[in-house]
Amino acid sequence: MLRHPAHILAQGFGSGLSPIMPGTSGTLFGWLSFHVFSTRWPEIFTTVNWAIIILLGFIVGVWACRITGKNLGVADHGSMVWDEIIAMWLVLLFITPASWQTQLWAFIIFRFFDMAKPPPIGYFDRRFKGGFGVMWDDIVAAFFCLLTFALWRAV
């Protein structure tokens, strides 16, 4: 992880090195970091600033995941979890303020879409490769998570 700065980011500051369910560990890291940053520094981590951070995080993530995947010899290596972190931040940005129970449901629903990859998420996962592909399918999973929440709240 420490051989290149891209690896630190792509592997979620070490959260992706978990031997058990690294994607879930990365998503948990995303949830925890969003909560800590938003609670500790609310004047910095505003809605607008989070949106900018997520957009820049996506762009830098494409680079970091491309480099890390190339260096590891696997385009979408399981230890690369920056995509889960950015996608979880996106979900939390749109559902916050929310109770911890609602955030837990967001975590569960996002993980379902990210792991099961129902259409069209699976299509994007197969179609796009490299750093963009790694990042994009998780953004689509986040969209479906948010769509689920929108439908849930409409009922």
Results as ranks from 00 to 15, higher is better:
residue 114 D to Y: 05
residue 36 V to P: 05
residue 79 S to T: 13
residue 117 K to V: 05
residue 80 M to W: 04
residue 19 P to F: 10
residue 136 W to A: 15
residue 52 I to V: 15
residue 147 L to R: 02
residue 137 D to E: 05
residue 61 G to K: 03
residue 26 G to C: 06
residue 11 Q to R: 11
residue 20 I to P: 05
residue 114 D to M: 09
residue 106 A to L: 04
residue 112 F to C: 04
residue 89 W to K: 03
residue 80 M to F: 08
residue 102 T to A: 12
residue 140 V to G: 00
residue 107 F to R: 01
residue 68 T to E: 09
residue 115 M to G: 10
residue 49 N to W: 12
residue 73 G to Q: 10
residue 14 G to H: 06
residue 72 L to R: 13
residue 74 V to F: 11
residue 75 A to N: 14
residue 109 I to H: 00
residue 78 G to Q: 10
residue 82 W to K: 02
residue 151 L to C: 14
residue 114 D to V: 04
residue 103 Q to H: 13
residue 151 L to P: 02
residue 93 L to A: 11
residue 113 F to Y: 12
residue 155 V to F: 14
residue 110 F to H: 01
residue 26 G to F: 04
residue 4 H to E: 09
residue 39 T to G: 07
residue 100 W to I: 14
residue 13 F to E: 06
residue 86 I to N: 07
residue 60 V to H: 04
residue 19 P to I: 07
residue 62 V to C: 14
residue 111 R to S: 09
residue 43 E to I: 06
residue 54 I to K: 00
residue 7 H to Y: 12
residue 14 G to E: 06
residue 127 R to T: 14
residue 81 V to N: 09
residue 50 W to E: 04
residue 66 R to C: 07
residue 99 S to V: 08
residue 15 S to K: 06
residue 133 G to V: 01
residue 30 G to K: 03
residue 63 W to F: 13
residue 148 T to F: 15
residue 2 L to C: 10
residue 111 R to D: 11
residue 3 R to T: 10
residue 99 S to D: 12
residue 85 I to Q: 01
residue 93 L to D: 09
residue 149 F to K: 03
residue 90 L to S: 09
residue 128 F to I: 12
residue 35 H to W: 15
residue 64 A to V: 04
residue 103 Q to A: 15
residue 27 T to H: 08
residue 83 D to T: 07
residue 24 T to S: 15
residue 107 F to S: 04
residue 80 M to A: 07
residue 9 L to D: 04
residue 4 H to G: 10
residue 89 W to I: 10
residue 64 A to D: 05
residue 18 S to M: 11
residue 36 V to E: 06
residue 28 L to R: 02
residue 127 R to A: 15
residue 1 M to F: 13
residue 76 D to G: 12
residue 12 G to A: 08
residue 106 A to W: 00
residue 150 A to N: 06
residue 115 M to Q: 07
residue 82 W to I: 13
residue 26 G to E: 04
residue 3 R to F: 13
residue 126 R to E: 14
residue 150 A to S: 13
residue 130 G to R: 08
residue 147 L to W: 13
residue 92 L to F: 11
residue 128 F to T: 01
residue 135 M to W: 02
residue 74 V to L: 14
residue 18 S to R: 05
residue 22 P to I: 06
residue 5 P to H: 08
residue 16 G to H: 02
residue 115 M to P: 01
residue 126 R to H: 15
residue 21 M to D: 06
residue 114 D to A: 09
residue 133 G to C: 08
residue 122 G to W: 07
residue 72 L to A: 13
residue 44 I to E: 03
residue 50 W to L: 08
residue 43 E to V: 05
residue 67 I to H: 05
residue 84 E to Y: 07
residue 148 T to G: 12
residue 55 L to W: 10
residue 60 V to A: 14
residue 102 T to K: 11
residue 155 V to G: 15
residue 145 C to H: 00
residue 10 A to K: 03
residue 38 S to R: 03
residue 33 S to W: 09
residue 87 A to E: 01
residue 32 L to S: 12
residue 6 A to T: 02
residue 125 D to G: 11
residue 57 G to T: 02
residue 76 D to A: 11
residue 116 A to E: 07
residue 58 F to E: 05
residue 27 T to V: 06
residue 13 F to W: 13
residue 140 V to T: 03
residue 114 D to S: 09
residue 142 A to L: 03
residue 92 L to Y: 05
residue 76 D to V: 05
residue 137 D to R: 01
residue 97 P to T: 07
residue 75 A to Y: 01
residue 135 M to N: 01
residue 103 Q to C: 15
residue 55 L to D: 07
residue 135 M to I: 02
residue 145 C to R: 00
residue 66 R to W: 11
residue 103 Q to T: 11
residue 45 F to K: 01
